[in-house]
Computed example of a mutant assay.
Amino acid sequence: MITGVTEPPELVIGLPNDDHLTVRVMGRMHPGSTDYWDGNWLISPISAHVGGFSAQLAAGLRVDELQTFRHGLELINQQLRGEAVLTSLEQWISLTVTCRPNGSLSVTGELADNPGIGNRLTFAITGLDQTNIPAMLTALSALESAYPLLGQP
């Protein structure tokens, strides 16, 4: 480990040795921008390992999209019901986490390698329950701390 070097913040949905999806935030796309529209774009590659498929996307997500997803997960964590949705403006990802009455989570989604004209991967991640939510919330909070929402719409 090199002192002073930190890993980019990341959100992992699923289990590292099983089906999972990872959103890693490398930085802001427009580091000099402080306005809501340009300043909140993040360089956020997405990787997925689901079933027999692996995907690597050079995606761009927005801080507000991740924030909306966190709010949905917080409600699930408090009420043990409902759903949290992560959708990207540019259609890189559509992800839904639904809490079933028994506390298990249904995670379904779709990834696009070239939104609008490229390939699409539809997937499900199984084997998760409400005990997996706190780690996701911690990761999303760390992302928001590193890249806070700038400006207002």
Score class of each variant (00 low, 15 high):
G52V: 09
W92T: 01
V12E: 12
G127Y: 10
T87N: 10
D64N: 15
P45V: 00
L80K: 12
A48S: 05
L128Q: 11
T6R: 15
Q152S: 14
I117L: 13
V85L: 13
D35F: 08
L121M: 12
T34L: 11
L80I: 12
T122R: 12
Q152I: 05
I133D: 00
Y147C: 02
A142W: 04
V107D: 03
L61F: 07
I76F: 02
C99T: 07
V5N: 13
P31S: 06
N119L: 13
P16M: 07
N114G: 10
H71M: 02
I133G: 07
P31T: 03
T126Y: 04
A142G: 12
L149Q: 15
P16Y: 07
G51A: 09
L111E: 08
G4V: 05
G109H: 00
V97N: 03
V107I: 14
V5P: 06
P45K: 06
V63C: 14
S33P: 05
V25P: 02
A59Q: 04
V85P: 07
G14D: 05
L128K: 06
S104G: 06
E90Y: 02
P8H: 05
G51N: 04
G82A: 06
V12Q: 14
L128A: 07
L75F: 02
E83Y: 06
T138L: 11
M29K: 15
A112Y: 03
S106Q: 14
Y147I: 00
G116M: 06
I13A: 04
L143F: 01
G109A: 00
T22K: 15
L21H: 11
L143V: 11
E110I: 08
N17G: 11
D18V: 08
L15Q: 14
T3Q: 13
M1N: 12
